[in-house]
Structures are given as C-alpha cells and as structure tokens.
Write a protein that binds this DNA or RNA. Structure first.
Lengths: 333, 333
DNA sequence: CTGAAAGCGCTTACAG
DNA sequence: CTGAAAGCGCTTACAG
C-alpha cells in the first residue's frame, strides 16, 4: 500500500495538511481550486486517512464491543438481535469478538487489542475473574456484563437458580424418578459459565425441599441433540421403565424425545431455554427473557455512555415455565 | 471514569511519562523504587492507557475485521470457523461486523469506524459496489472478498453458475416438470448477494442446453423451512402430480420435503449448500467447499499482511453434487 | 537507569 | 479562506 500521510499528501498537492483534512472531512469552505488539487492528489495516491489517528483525535469510535463465548447458538442470536436496534438508534455500531475455541483468551489480555478500541464493552456469559488473569478488565470505559454477574460490574442476568428450581418443582408433581442430563464443564476454564452450575443448585434445592433426590445424573460433552439421545439410551438400557428427564438444555431434551419416539417409550422430558423448536416439538421448557435482558443491557450501556448512570446496577430477570406436552405423558402419533 | 493521561499520571507519581510507559509495558530496567511509585499511582487512579493511541503508535492492531451480512446461519459459522485457526496461528484476532438488518450500512461508509481499525479487511458475500456509495472501500489496508468477487479485489468464491448447472443437469435426467423455489431479493440493496442470481443463471443454462424450461418459479421472502413448505403447498394445490422441486437453499428443500411427507406425496427435491441436516434428512444437495474457501481466504490475508502477495488474485472453487434419497423417488417409512 | 523531545497521523482553534 | 501550530495519548530513540 501507499506510505503517505496527510503531510506528504499536502505537499504533493501544494497545500497545507489542514486543507487536506478539511477536504477529507467535507468542509465546505475550501476554495474550489484548492479542493481540486487535493482531490487530484487523493486520486493519484489512493491515500486514506488512518482511522486510528482519526478516532484518537475524536476521542471515540462510536462502537460498542461485545466479547462472547460463541456466535453459533440461538441464545446469542436472540441476545445480539435484541441489543442491536438499541445501539443503532443511539448511533452506535456493534463489534463482535467471539471466543471461538478459546483461542483468543490470551489476546484479550492485551489492552491494545481491538475490543478495547470501542467506547464501551459488553461481556456476555463470561466471568471476568476467569477471563482476566489479573482479575481486571483492561479497559477504562464502561463495562457491562450480560448473562453473568460480578460484584464489581454492572450486570444483567437471568435467575438461573430459580430456573432450576422451577424445573424441579414441575417434575416433583409426579412420582417417577428424575434423571438429570447436564453438561460436563471445565470449571476452571475461561469459558466456564456459572449458568449450568446455578441451574443445578436450584434443582437440588427444589428437590431437597420435597425430600427427593435425583435418581441419576448423566453428563454430556456437548449441548447437541445427539448427546441427549445417547444419554437417554444409556439410562434406559440400564433402568427400563418410566422416568422423568430433566435436561439442562432444550437441545438435549430434543435428543431425549427423539430417542423415546424411536423406541416408542413414554417418559417425561423438560428442557431449558425455550428454544424456537421447543414449541413445535411440544417440549416443556424454562423460558428465559433473553430479549428483555439484551435490550435492558444495551439501554444501560447507552446510558453509561451518556453519563446518566451513577450507581452500580445489577439486574436479575426471572425465568418462567412453559408447560407443553412433553412433561405430560404423551401418546404416539 | 478517570480523566488521566500518561502525563498527568506521571506527575502524580513524580516521574516522567516515559517511565510510566516503561512500567506499563513491563520494561525490566526501571528501578524498583520508581516502579513502585508508578504502580501506586496506577492503583490509586485506575488509569488505563488509551488503546487507540497505543496502536496508532505501534501502527497495527493485530486484528482482522470481517464484515458479513449476518451471523446466524450455518454457512457463516462454517466460514468463520475455518478462518479462525489460520488467523490465530499467525497471531491475529478476528473482529466480526455483521450487517444485522442492514442498519450498519451507512456507518461503514465512515472510514473512522472500527472495522477499519483492523490490519486487514474481509468482506463476505457483499458486493463492494453496492455497499459503498462511492464505489470504494474506505480502507487502505489489504482487502479480500469471500463468497463474492470483484475485479478490483482479491477474492475467493464458489462457482455458483456451475452449482446451478449441476443441479439442473441432475434433475434433467428425469421427465417430471421442474419447479424452482427461490428467494425474492432486493437487487439494489447493499445485501444483495450475487449468489442466488448466479445459481439461477446456471440453472437456466443447464435447462437450455437440453431444450427444457422451468414449469414454474416460486419466490419466498425468507430462506426458512416454512417458506419451502408454503411454496410446495401452493404449487401442488394448483398442479397436482409428480414434479421436481429445485430449491435454491437446503432450508427451502427441507420445508418442501416436510410438506410432501405430511401429504404422502412423491416428488423429487434438491437443495443447495449441503447443510448438515441434508445428510440426516437424505436431501440431495449441492455441496460447497466452504471450509476450503475460508481457509484459503484467511491464508491469503495473512500473506498480504506479510507482503507476500504481488498480483491480484481471484480464486473460484468448484461445488459438487451430493446425491441422496430425495432426488430419487422415495417411499414412505 | 531516566527524562526531554520528537513523532505516530490526524483535526481544530487561532491568526492572518 | 488558508496555514502554522498545538495537541489527542502514547512510545522510543537519544542524551545524559
């Protein structure tokens, strides 16, 4: 590429750097003949001003960075889609930094890296303490957590403990044994989200209050349909007879349902997230106010940017239970 | 937040800005007692250096920006996942700028905006001529197109024309009328990807070469299963009897298949993309070398950053046909 | 080992 | 209307 800056270009055009800058920024009071010269030099060289210098000067980038674990799940689509219009309306852009495969973790320790060029930072589902070795986000602009919480940061999250409890309480209405299908997680890893752990705690508490316990727990490595299917098969091979599968994600629940359908078995199933397919597949699920959470968080960030936030704010939203056919005993089509 | 810079902090600590900078960057030859003072002031004020200034000075950000239409489809997941390891290995981060809903288009005209802070830019599926009013990307660093092409830019794309032709030729083996299900697109809009148009052209050419024509064309507004289902219903209500549905996306094809299953009808269906569900649903589909495309593009960007690219390069990859049950006439389970 | 100064590439008062 | 200069917030030779 070219190695010009605004000064070399200015001398090339026979004007001052200030004039080049004015032309670049569409300042209307540049005399036509000078403007002409600048435009010509611009054309000639293909010169482009350095955006880093421009926004250093301006003191802002009109962009909000979002660091999130991944982008290929329904949860994050819904979250991002709910934040986007708020940012847009306020004149901000959104930059996404997914931690695909955990590669990035070390890079985001570097305060120079692009996420921190934004005017504000959103950390979704990530625990700052685990993400940052030194226990501090290397960023001096507004920081907001979504789908996690931490005492030092603004946060918007879902009451996962209550979600778990709701699910347990629902199944406790029936006498069949309750089998949990959960996710195997690396607790120490930077990804480790407290979500599943908190749901578990809620489930345990719900059970305890009724003097019940889990008949069994199966952990899968991935939140896919296949995992649910396998887990259900494994369990039922060793423990035939009706039971209730409490799945920590709808994808798992769907896998379980598929297995039951194939084998013409009758068991109850319940999932978490109220994924779009939960409705069409008649899966009982814990519905999370994802859009509401995203929108509130986004509004809060904008308020922070406007200097309208004066106290540390931590908002917890309440999940609800969507009862559908899968937690009744179904009959086959 | 604090309104400090490195100089105010320096005087607060009783040292020079240079020393503060050295401490900030872990320079080992700062005497302990000075380092102490600086660390103390840092602690006191919570000061963080401005990353924009730091990378202005450094001249780089070690980040590659990707502007893409959306992030919630299998196509982009596969594309991004194939680029990521290449960037990571070369020490670069990836920043995602999805054009969710087209909001951003105007913002990306602004050369100051965050995408252009990256060291290189990837434009996925977008036509620079439509995206940028002035027909020029406001960026002086390396630019690479993926899943589109343009004579002025490096590009890695799939031979969509050939993909269309392959699909048509496959169906031409049978005598049943061919019905196309495509996407209604705003041709002028910034999103308008040439992909569908090119597939159409290939299909038309394939048909022409055999002296055949389409029995009908149905356009849907969204690439979802529901659209395919509706389209199939609409067509079959008015034209009962076997036909062949040529769907411009697998999601559409899946919808068609669902409708056929529900009604116990027998028609052939073929889709595009070889979506993961195509295999499990036995859908014949045009398979695109997405991962290969992503990986090649990523490698090329890295080469450009290393100054190892000397000529404009345009790579076109060839799709293949995956024949499965859906383009034979199936029998019901 | 440390500081004053120059400079990264811009923009914007300030004179003229 | 235009230019020289100061400054955005850093870092890094260069002296000392």
């Amino acid at each position: 590429m070219n190695k010009h800056n605004i000064h070399t270009l200015a001398s090339l055009a026979g004007v001052s750097a200030a004039t080049v800058s004015r032309v670049l920024n569409g300042n209307p009071q540049v005399k036509p003949h000078l403007k002409e010269k600048v435009l010509h030099a611009l054309e000639e060289t293909g010169f482009r001003p350095d955006p880093k210098a421009q926004s250093l000067r301006a003191g802002k980038t009109r962009t909000i960075s979002v660091i999130l674990p991944m982008i290929d799940t329904d949860f994050y689509h819904r979250l991002l889609h709910s934040m986007e219009p708020v940012f847009d309306e306020a004149g901000y852009d959104m930059a996404l930094f997914p931690l695909v495969g955990g590669f990035r973790v070390k890079k985001y320790q570097d305060p120079t890296s692009l996420p921190y060029h934004g005017d504000a930072l959103i950390l979704a589902s990530l625990d700052p303490d685990k993400l940052y070795a030194n226990h501090e986000v290397p960023f001096r602009k507004p920081i907001t957590l979504v789908d996690t919480h931490h005492q030092h940061y603004h946060s918007f999250s879902i009451h996962n403990h209550q979600a778990g409890k709701l699910a347990a309480q629902h199944l406790l209405l029936n006498r069949e044994p309750i089998v949990l299908i959960g996710l195997r997680q690396d607790e120490a890893g930077p990804f480790a989200s407290p979500v599943f752990e908190e749901r578990m705690e809620g489930i345990q508490q719900g059970l305890q209050e009724q003097g019940r316990t889990l008949a069994g727990t199966l952990l899968v490595d991935e939140l896919g349909t296949e995992g649910g299917r396998q887990a259900a098969r494994l369990w039922l091979e060793q423990h035939p007879g009706p039971c209730q599968f409490l799945c920590l994600a709808d994808t798992l629940a769907l896998g379980v349902k598929r297995h039951l359908q194939e084998r013409h078995l009758e068991c109850r199933v319940i999932g978490f997230d109220d994924h779009p397919f939960a409705a069409t597949e008649s899966l009982t699920s814990i519905k999370q106010p994802i859009e509401q959470m995203g929108e509130m968080a986004a509004r809060h960030v904008i308020q922070q940017l406007r200097g309208e936030v004066y106290t540390l704010q931590s908002t917890v939203l309440t999940p609800t239970l969507k009862i559908r056919q899968s937690s009744r005993l179904w009959t086959h089509p």
